[in-house]
Design a binder for these strands. Structure first.
Lengths: 186, 186
DNA sequence: ACCTGAACACCGTTCAAGT
DNA sequence: ACCTGAACACCGTTCAAGT
């Protein structure tokens, strides 16, 4: 039994796509933030052109790698926005975001980029910022956050804390987050 | 009148060195953080080998580019450590550091690096951290800074604020610094 | 449709040959 | 001593040729 041509091609394409993402993930988690596309192609056992067909730019590959993390973050923000104690929920969300950033190098690059290359990333980003805005409004109303902080600030500041922890070495994320949380109070 | 051979060579070498630094500065200030050494050589009108002779690694070129900024920072920290109001001096120093970081891309790369390649950078770094430790001690004694913050933390956090401002776009440095300063209070 | 891989331009880095 | 630039390996990116 063979699949109809269209389906078979799509299935094959999806398989190849997964191979490339797997190879890319292995590389970037191994600390190679450059992520040379030629090397990804070789690791995945496909031609370079195939990488470029699936991911026209390096940024699109990074966004594909970070997609799960970004979706999880957006979900966490939405749950946080409904929590009873908005101030505490904000702290928990930021801790979760930093923990993800520590484990997923691609997420740091995507969250730090000024704008998204893929529609999917754009959507998730908007979801995230929207939920965060709601969360901030409630936290502000509860007196937990100063007046002038926006969701975009929060995104930037989380990237900043992550970067600071990277500069310092390892294991400082928690302390730096506490400093940020204190600084966010009115 | 010709100079003795040794002096003439040294003078020529110094001239060539300045040409390379000038070319590199132009590139990096033009936004090319990659700073390709082949391109620097071409811009400076020297052979690639000459660049490598003067700056064996990219890191050493970056440190040469950031040397003035780093020296100025170390000086500012030493002056701050002697100021009457240690808390205020700390805030002023951090503002000055961030202003330098905004203007000198090489400084951000050097300050963010885990360790220095050149002895000179190492010395200046130690000077900076030493002065900062003194400043912190006095600010802490005056009740302006929480107990667990070290000079190394401060260095990392400044890099973090700078990074956050870069992620956010432009002009947020001041607001983010205020958040950091509030967060540093005990 | 999708994939391959040769091809070209460019950069990192070294080193033999020049002055 | 110091400088030059050819040389080699590698990566980004495109595109004609294959299936």
């Amino acid at each position: 039994m063979s699949y109809p041509l269209g389906v078979s091609l799509r299935a094959d394409s999806a398989r190849v796509r997964e191979q490339m993402l797997l190879a890319a993930r292995r590389r970037i988690e191994g600390g190679d933030l450059d992520l040379p596309l030629n090397a990804v192609a070789k690791d995945a056992g496909v031609g370079v052109g195939t990488v470029y067909r699936h991911f026209p730019t390096r940024q699109e590959l990074l966004e594909a790698l970070a997609a799960d993390s970004l979706a999880e973050l957006a979900g966490a923000a939405e749950r946080a926005a409904e929590a009873a104690d908005a101030g505490a929920a904000l702290g928990d969300f930021l801790a979760a975001a930093l923990s993800r950033l520590d484990r997923d190098p691609a997420l740091a690059l995507v969250l730090g980029a000024s704008d998204a290359a893929c529609d999917d990333t754009m959507r998730r980003s908007r979801e995230l910022l929207g939920a965060l805005t709601g969360l901030l409004d409630r936290a502000r109303a509860g007196g937990a956050v100063r007046a002038d902080v926006t969701a975009a600030d929060l995104r930037a500041l989380v990237c900043g804390v992550h970067h600071a922890a990277e500069v310092a070495g390892t294991g400082e994320t928690g302390r730096y987050l506490r400093i940020l949380l204190d600084g966010l109070k009115p």
